[in-house]
Design a protein around this nucleic acid. Structure first.
Length: 425
DNA sequence: TCTGGGGTCCTAGGACCC
DNA sequence: TCTGGGGTCCTAGGACCC
């Protein structure tokens, strides 16, 4: 039977912000979404003050003033860099690991020296010592249980040592613990399923674990059935240690200020397409279609609403920014209507396939393809050397009014020489 | 004034085929 | 009066995740 560990950084974004500013040590802080919209991470102090996850920041101004809560714009350059440092440390324990998200990784502990709890504690200590971030470790025989053990380490068993191994507990202890955890904490149980389970009298992890899998499948889905089996120690989800290629690539943003005209929308759609095309080439794929989406602000229902998207198939699969922009703008012109305050635009690339293996059609001019590839490669190299957006299509524009707000951004401490922290005294 | 972005999987239903 | 059955492919929509 495999042994999974889930390592999860505590309050990851908030912890990253605190790491480089010691004066924030006991200060309640929050990290905001793009456009400084809503709360996406809270430090322990903010959670204690009752700051809800996902709350719009503008609704929290009073609470913030009252308790001195400091807010930060999300600084993904910093978080991504700290994440890669944590991953590097974790991979020193075992090559059998899956980087599940920016702040979570699954490790398979089978065959490692020491008891499972000792390994868990060593992971915590090494990460704390080498990068200064707090993590918790959940250990169990399935991924779903390891996620739950991690939750227990953070909540129900907080105050112990940040490590929870279900394998070290008796069946009775586990059952008692499960009876105290709301079913919504289980990986795979979201809001809707939680509501429906509640109607059926299932409110705790223990009740879900003890529900008949067949009955769950009948009333819900094979997905939740798998969850129930995993809660019973039957491993259904494997470690995905090779990251699969993306099947679709998206790029979208809300606007800092509403946009009314086609020109502004075109600039943003061209910008998003440029970014999406970069991701596409990084994965060495071509796209068969691009979808353009524009929408008004659903949080202002008293304003006229509009929400539409258009799928534009490409004549030939491509990774050429210019061709993708041409297709995206064609789609945009088809769906654009005047008289709306647009809040968001985005594109999605689909029909992805490897650039090599694809069928070459009679319509493709090999010389033109070669030139396209060379140009894109040159553009990517220049942007890698001089920073994103150094060389970009003219249609992405110079008007900054629609670009996002990031008024509370912390420095790029670890990824920009000019922002390197200074030690004095 | 002010409410994120980027993904995956599963299912149902329609089109189409033999 | 009475109108097959089964398979595949695609898309849209709903659920979930961080």
């Amino acid at each position: 039977m495999p042994v999974f560990a889930l390592v999860d950084c505590n309050n990851f974004y908030a912890s990253c912000e605190k790491l480089f500013d010691p004066t924030l040590r006991d200060t309640p802080i929050v990290v905001l979404s793009n456009n400084d919209g809503c709360v996406v991470a809270r430090s322990a102090e903010s959670k204690t003050l009752g700051v809800p996850m996902g709350a719009p920041w503008f609704q929290l101004h009073d609470l913030a003033r009252q308790h001195g809560i400091r807010a930060f714009s999300s600084n993904y350059a910093l978080y991504a860099d700290m994440s890669s440092r944590v991953v590097e440390i974790l991979s020193s324990f075992t090559p059998s690991m899956e980087v599940y998200s920016i702040d979570e990784s699954f490790l398979v502990l089978d065959g490692l020296p020491g008891t499972r709890e000792e390994i868990g504690r060593e992971i915590r200590e090494r990460v704390a010592r080498w990068v200064g971030l707090p993590v918790c470790v959940g250990i169990a025989s399935t991924k779903t249980l390891a996620k739950l053990a991690n939750h227990a380490a953070k909540k129900a068993l907080a105050g112990r040592d940040g490590v929870c191994d279900f394998g070290a507990m008796t069946p009775d202890e586990v059952s008692t613990l499960f009876a105290s955890i709301p079913v919504a904490e289980v990986w795979g149980v979201g809001r809707r399923i939680d509501e429906r389970l509640a109607e059926m009298g299932i409110g705790t992890v223990r009740q879900l674990r003890d529900a008949p899998p067949g009955w769950i499948r009948e009333h819900f889905s094979v997905v939740l059935e798998r969850t129930v089996r995993e809660l019973n120690g039957v491993s259904c989800l494997n470690l995905e240690d090779v990251t699969p290629d993306k099947q679709q690539i998206m790029a979208s943003r809300s606007f800092g200020n509403p946009v009314f005209d086609l020109e502004g929308l075109s600039e943003s759609v061209a910008s998003h397409t440029t970014r999406a095309a970069e991701k596409l080439r990084a994965q060495r794929h071509v796209a068969g279609a691009i979808t353009v989406t524009i929408r008004s602000n659903p949080f202002k229902p008293w304003e006229p609403q509009y929400n539409r998207s258009e799928v534009v198939p490409l004549p030939e699969p491509s990774a050429d920014t210019r061709e993708l922009i041409r297709a995206a703008l064609w789609g945009l012109r088809r769906i654009y209507r005047t008289g709306f305050a647009y809040k968001k635009a985005g594109v999605m690339l689909s029909g992805l396939e490897p650039e090599r293996r694809r069928q070459s059609s009679l319509l493709v001019d090999p010389e033109r393809e070669r030139k396209s590839a060379a140009l894109m490669q040159a553009m990517d190299s220049i942007n890698a050397r001089w920073g994103r957006g150094s060389l970009r299509p003219l249609v992405t524009g110079f008007d900054a009014s629609w670009r996002m707000r990031r008024e509370k951004l912390s420095p790029a401490w670890t990824t920009c020489w000019d922002a390197l922290p200074r030690v004095t005294g």
